[in-house]
């Protein structure tokens, strides 16, 4: 996700040649494993959805990436930080997840109907993957029920 965002918005002022190179790298990475970008994002969401059934995950720091050494060697790597189960830390992880949903929700509300696909995506991703009660909170928030539930809890 962060990858996609930085690809879309983080482009610094460099020549179109460098842009061409970045775009080629991206497109070939997917061509070579025969998995288009959106399907890859879908896969990441599914992987996370399974994991959060069992573990509390710090969603903001999840990194699932495809590494490519050359045409014939690709490797999917995942770094998925999980909360250690002491009551305090578990709470904390849930809170930070909610906060992410929160800001995305707030953005969506600010932009009203103009909220673009990228932002919707973010919200979806977080919603789906969250622990059920946290997801409820985020949804309530999106509806614009004033202050975040999470904030009130903390």
């Amino acid at each position: 996700m962060t990858n996609l965002l930085s690809r879309l918005f983080g482009r610094s002022k460099k020549g179109s040649g460098a842009t061409a190179k970045d775009r080629l790298r991206f497109v070939l990475q997917h061509d070579r494993i025969n998995l288009p970008p959106e399907r890859m994002e879908e896969m990441k969401r599914e992987i996370l959805a399974v994991i959060v059934k069992y573990l509390v995950v710090d969603q903001d720091r999840v990194e699932i990436d495809l590494e490519q050494r050359d045409r014939t060697h690709s490797k999917l790597t995942a770094e998925i930080p999980v909360a250690i189960h002491t009551p305090a830390s578990a709470n904390k992880a849930v809170e930070s997840t909610v906060a992410a949903a929160d800001s995305a929700g707030a953005n969506g509300a600010n932009n009203g109907a103009n909220a673009d696909a990228e932002k919707d995506d973010t919200v979806d991703e977080v919603d789906k993957a969250e622990a059920p009660d946290a997801a409820e909170d985020a949804k309530a928030d999106k509806r614009g029920n004033g202050e975040s539930e999470a904030d009130r809890k903390s």
Binding site: K14, G15, S16, G17
Partner: peptide, 19 residues
């Protein structure tokens, strides 16, 4: 000239990508 201006993939770029 375009490669120099950074406006075209260089031969090194193509090599990096295709190997």
């Amino acid at each position: 000239d375009m490669v120099k201006k950074g406006e075209m993939l260089s031969s090194e770029d193509v090599f990096d990508i295709l190997g």
